[in-house]
């Protein structure tokens, strides 16, 4: 769920850019470290950014009958790690703004914060928690992808509510309004994206177990099980 170009007041646009920059900077630092240890990761992350962009252009069938596009937040975080997703997400969001006029350059910081920071970190944390709690692999993936999607949209609603508080009810009423309005599309979308991510991961486990092990998504023991 992108925030439109020029929609946020200038203080908020700058504020969210400042809030996002340490995460992007740390992501770049961790990517540089990965590049030094495994030089082939340079190409992998570049192609992964293109993959995320292409993913966002696909039509995702929604359980309500409408269709939208997957965010790829959960899948990307599980495959490439949450820290790498901040710079990858920044590149993808910038490309979406320039090539598709989706989102914007002034709102890039806010969109990075919700989609490339909150979403991936939430997905990675939920996936790890679910695996620690010994939940089934497919259910862990579903929880990670769908809850990351929901948290992304809740963050965007909070960003909009902060920028445009309700004249009578303030932040709380505005947040309830934005979250309520977007819930009609975002909750079915989150469920669809969760199901889709499970189908993708099941296919990968079945046909590309070696690649998943190399990406450190699953262990040899998990694959045997």
């Amino acid at each position: 769920m992108h925030i439109m170009e020029g929609f946020l007041p200038v203080q908020h646009a700058i504020g969210w850019s400042v809030a996002s920059s340490p995460f992007v900077a740390y992501g770049l630092h961790s990517i540089n470290k990965r590049f030094r240890e495994q030089p082939e990761q340079r190409m992998l992350l570049g192609v992964a950014a293109a993959f995320t962009f292409v993913l966002s252009a696909l039509k995702l069938p929604s359980v309500t009958g409408s269709c939208s596009h997957p965010t790829g937040t959960g899948l990307g975080a599980i495959l490439f790690g949450p820290t790498a997703m901040a710079p990858i997400g920044a590149v993808v969001l910038m490309f979406q703004a320039i090539l598709l006029a989706h989102g914007g350059l002034t709102t890039l910081g806010a969109n990075i914060f919700s989609m490339a920071i909150v979403g991936p970190f939430a997905a990675a944390a939920i996936y790890r928690l679910a695996r620690t709690a010994r939940l089934p692999f497919g259910f862990s993936i579903f929880l990670a992808a769908s809850l990351a999607d929901l948290l992304t949209y809740i963050t965007t609603s909070a960003q909009l509510a902060l920028a445009f508080p309700d004249p009578s009810g303030g932040f709380a009423a505005s947040f309830a309004k934005f979250a309520g309005v977007f819930a009609f599309t975002q909750i079915p979308l989150a469920i669809s994206e969760g199901l889709l991510t499970v189908v993708v991961m099941n296919s990968l486990v079945r046909f590309n177990a070696r690649e998943l092990q190399q990406m450190k998504v699953t262990t040899a023991q998990e694959l045997k099980a």
Binding site: F51, V54, L55, L58, L60, P61, L75, L79, L196, V198, V199, V200, M201, N202, S203, L204, F207, N208, E211
Partner: peptide, 10 residues
């Protein structure tokens, strides 16, 4: 779509 994305990931 799931098999398409799995294939694309590979």
């Amino acid at each position: 779509l799931g098999s398409l994305l799995a294939n694309l990931t590979v």
